[in-house]
Design a protein around this nucleic acid. Sequence first.
DNA 1: GCCAACGTTGGC
DNA 2: GCCAACGTTGGC
Length: 158
Amino acid sequence: MADTQTGQGYWIMKSEPSCYSIDDLKRDKKTMWDGVRNYQVRNMMRDQMQAGDLALFYHSSTKEVGVVGVMEIVGKAYPDPTQFDPKSDHPDPTSDPKSPRWLCVDVAFKQKFPQVVSLELLKESKPLQQLQILKRGNRLSVTPVTKNEFECILKMAV
DNA sequence: GCCAACGTTGGC
DNA sequence: GCCAACGTTGGC
């Protein structure tokens, strides 16, 4: 979500660490955030995400669920090449290469938190009650957060 | 355009 | 591995 003063956008982006973790990103320094196959998420990436935006890296479906670090959106969203790769995890044979359906974005490692800001802690935090990832049934892998929410989570990480 | 069936997500 | 919740698909 873009801050009205600065235009700076803030996000939470989920990944299962068994698939791709904060340590993988730390090692790679930069990666292509691919595999998004949800229209809402695609539209946010296409319409709202900007280079320089900051994103919290969230580990889902693991022993320690929660926010584990920070990354930066490097550039604008562009067609996700894995949709055309039959050997990828999420090929989409119905997507037309002349008008690609799915987008991805490049992200760069910023920091890994010394400890996980657990889902439990997020739930307990008063200022974070509006977080979309805390809402029942939320399944979006990318969700906007406000500057305040972002900074609140950063403080919880130390 | 409705809606049942199905597949996926993600916390536990 | 269970299951609630949600998105997508496809028959009508």
